[in-house]
Every structure is written in C-alpha cells, then in structure tokens.
Design a protein around this nucleic acid. Structure first.
Lengths: 136, 136
DNA sequence: ATACCTGCAAATGGTTTGCGAAGTT
DNA sequence: AACTTCGCAAACCATTTGCAGGTAT
C-alpha cells in the first residue's frame, strides 16, 4: 500500500475506488498537474471518474496536507504531493515547474517578517524565467 | 493634471470621464484596492460608473504598466499604482497589505534563477503573517 | 446501519465580451 | 467623420455544491 493511501486511512478517510485511482495518479505524477491533468489521467484508469470528485478529492487532500495547491500565474490550480518545503521556478516558455530550496531565503523571509512586526505563517515565492540559451 | 493622467495621454489613450474618475480613485488610494473597491469609490464620484468599465480600465492600465495587478491568496485581484519594485506581506487577520523592499532578496533570487539556468523575468514573493502581539 | 462518498447537473463568482449608443480628437 | 470607449446584459471558465443514490466500515 502506498504512503499516501496509508495517510488517508490514518486520517479516517474511506478508501473508495475513485480515491484510490486519484492517489495512484498523484503517486505517479512527477510534475505539478492541474485538476484537468489529474482528471484526464484518472479517467484513463477509470473512465467513469467525475471531475467533481477530482475537485473534491484534491481539495480534501490539500486540507489534510497530503498535497499542496499552487496558483501560479495562469488562472488555474496545480497540485503536487506535499514534500519538504521548497519554492518554484516556472519556465515561461514551456510552463515547466522546477523546484528549489534555499536556506538563505528561508532565513531572510523570516527576518523580514519579524522586522515588520509579524510572525511568518506562510509564504509564496515564485520565480518566472526564460531558459538561458547556451549558444547552440 | 495628475501624473497618471499624463501617462494616459502620452500613451494615446482617450481621456474620458470614467477614466478620469478611475485615475482619481487610483491616485488617492493608499492601499491595494480590489476591483470592487475601485468600483465603489468611483461610483461615489460618478454613480453611473459601470463595473465593466472598471475591469476594462484596470486591465488596460495594467497592460500599460500604470498599475500592477496582484492575486494574493484570496480569489480576486487587487491593484496598486506601479512604483519601485517591492514585495508584499499580507496580514492574515486584517487582509492589510504591507510593502517592503530588500536588496539581499533581489540578489538572491537572481542568483537562484541563474544557477538553475534561467534568466529571471518576473517574481512573486508574498509573505503571509500574523501581527506579533507586544504584550498589551 | 449509518456516516461518508460519488456522479450529475445546476449554481457560483470573478472576470470578459458582443453590441449598439455615446464620446473624444 | 473616424475611431475609441461605455454601459448593459449575456457569456465565460474554473470551481463549488445540492441532491439522490451508492459504498466503506
């Protein structure tokens, strides 16, 4: 049984067929799929899958912390299986999302918030860039 | 004539009554108003103002670079008159938006993008926090 | 048995747009 | 006069939700 599935059981969620399918899709996803992406992939496994269920399940998993919802600047949500804290760089040409971590940034943002009189609760850091051409 | 108004004229935009009202509202706004905020304030000056015009005008001004559109994590857009590059801290309790600048962050994000093989084109950095209570 | 889930279709809510009328240069 | 821009109402689109039937525990 997958890690994600165990999480669901531990959380007291009922393990239904649609959920298992969505968990499988998420477990196999190496990217940051949109709701439609998840829906399309799930539908290949079980063609009776409903988009409402995908929306509901992803929202639920997000609340539970199993997945993280992102709203990059493109007008729809993308999800990823939750993992260590990191940020994202979005390739403006391909839409590809690259993850990165940086200790200095972490310290800096906490300090900035504190200097402004705030406890940092959450943070959104997204870089948008174009691949540097290495003279081809 | 306001700076913003001059910008519009220079850009070849027609100076209509609704636009003048919206410019006035933007010029007086010290905050980061939503479309509805701008609409409400504009309507106080000219009750015939249409929300469609507010949407169209703000989008236009955004494209022109006169204002900057933000989508904080609350499901609607907020606008601010464009100014020096800065980032935002959102007060989770009040929704108030605080601006800040930080040279170190600027350097760091450019470096991070470069290290990943990208030219940094754009960036979104938003901190969400709760005010530190100073023992009242 | 009884919560909880699901699929469907309809509703939502912010935003955009077609159209004919009105305004700007 | 020529071209924009406006206001209205309808359209859009991602997302949410009410409901009636189905399912895991």
């Amino acid at each position: 049984m997958s890690n994600l599935e165990q999480n669901c059981i531990d959380a007291g969620l009922k393990m239904t067929a649609p959920r298992r399918v969505i968990l499988q899709v998420l477990g196999q996803a190496g990217d940051h799929p949109s709701v439609d992406d998840v829906y399309a992939r799930a539908k290949e496994i079980d063609s009776s899958m409903s988009i409402a269920t995908v929306y509901r399940t992803l929202s639920l998993f997000d609340e539970m912390g199993f997945v993280t919802r992102h709203e990059f600047q493109e007008g729809r949500s993308r999800y990823e299986v939750s993992s260590d804290h990191h940020h994202h760089l979005v390739d403006l040409e391909t839409g590809k999302v690259i993850e990165f971590k940086d200790e200095e940034i972490e310290k800096l943002k906490t300090k900035i918030a504190r200097d402004l009189g705030y406890d940092l609760v959450e943070c959104r850091l997204e870089l948008y860039g174009r691949k540097i051409k290495t003279d081809g």
